[in-house]
């Protein structure tokens, strides 16, 4: 019997993306540049996050026309974003046959209480998380992949680093509890996170998140990507960092190289040379809207 939309297939696609770079693109031409540079997937958007910030107003799912154009332009997987809790937008994205849906805090949330129940969908979901509790809640809702929220469109890596470290610290804590067989405390953690205790125990046993975990939100240079990889993520999303840089094609290739060779500093030095100006970036304290506070 043939089965589709199983969790193995959903999480399996995420496995195939590991070690790779997923790039935000807003048209077919950018999508081609990303594919040629060696991106493992593209995120089809109407605006990159830094433009969403400056445009203000309500940010929604992209126009299906843009998504279709990008799907036509490339052979690598195409992802698209829907608003947190907006299951109707997610249904539309599934009808468009995108390969992955990002239920994203970069767009204006549609539901302040609930995320989408991701289990009935055939298409896998990736969701943002700032700490282990958020990550496990999203996995429990059916997410097949997790990414840090970081701070999208900021060009500032500090929030992504904070979120990677928090997830790691959370896993270290439950690992210790499991080794010393403190089942009562593990149960308390599960209650605090609002997830089943089995998920907490399974994560502690694995010593990592049970799904693929990427960094996102603020990656602007090859060294940023290498930093996140060395901190233990499986790959990186680059949003505004590529097409808001002075030389997108070269920056894209350099970030792909740095992600593949994240421990090879001399290689990263070589690809970082003469890239031109990276995206400008912002201090987190100067931001009017912190996107990462959305959808916890």
């Amino acid at each position: 019997m043939t089965k589709t939309g199983t969790f193995k297939l959903k999480s399996g696609l995420a496995q195939m993306l590991k070690g790779g770079v997923i790039m935000d693109v807003v048209n077919a031409q950018q999508a081609k540049i990303a594919e040629d540079a060696g991106a493992v997937a593209v995120m089809a958007l109407e605006r990159v996050p830094s433009d969403i910030r400056s445009a203000g107003g309500v940010a929604r799912m992209a126009d299906p026309k843009i998504i279709k154009e990008i799907q036509k332009a490339v052979t690598i997987p195409v992802m698209a974003k829907c608003r947190i809790g907006h299951f109707a937008e997610a249904q539309v994205l599934q009808a468009l046959e995108v390969d992955f849906i990002d239920e994203s805090e970069v767009l204006t949330p549609a539901d302040e209480e609930f995320h989408i129940d991701k289990t009935p969908f055939t298409i896998p979901f990736v969701c943002g998380a700032r700490d282990l509790g958020e990550a496990l809640r999203r996995i429990n809702e059916g997410a097949a992949m997790v990414r840090t929220k970081g701070e999208a469109g900021s060009g500032n890596i500090v929030e992504a680093v904070k979120h990677i470290r928090k997830v790691t610290a959370g896993i270290d804590e439950i690992k210790k509890l499991l080794i010393s067989k403190k089942m009562k405390q593990l149960n308390d953690v599960a209650i605090k996170y609002s997830v089943p205790v089995e998920l907490v125990i399974n994560t502690a046993k694995l010593g990592r998140l049970p799904v693929v975990n990427f960094a996102a939100g603020g990656i602007a240079t090859p060294a940023d990507a290498a930093l996140c990889m060395q901190l233990g993520v499986d790959g990186v999303f680059v949003g505004s960092g590529i097409f808001k840089s002075q030389n997108p094609a070269k920056t894209a290739r350099a970030i792909v190289d740095a992600t593949a060779h994240f421990t090879d500093a001399s290689k990263i030095a070589k690809v970082s040379e003469n890239l031109g100006d990276p995206m400008k970036g912002q201090e987190i304290s100067d931001l009017v809207q912190k996107m990462s506070d959305r959808g916890i």
Partner: peptide, 10 residues
């Protein structure tokens, strides 16, 4: 096709 057509089969 894309991910929507991915499948598992014995």
């Amino acid at each position: 096709g894309g991910q929507i057509s991915s499948f598992e089969k014995k």
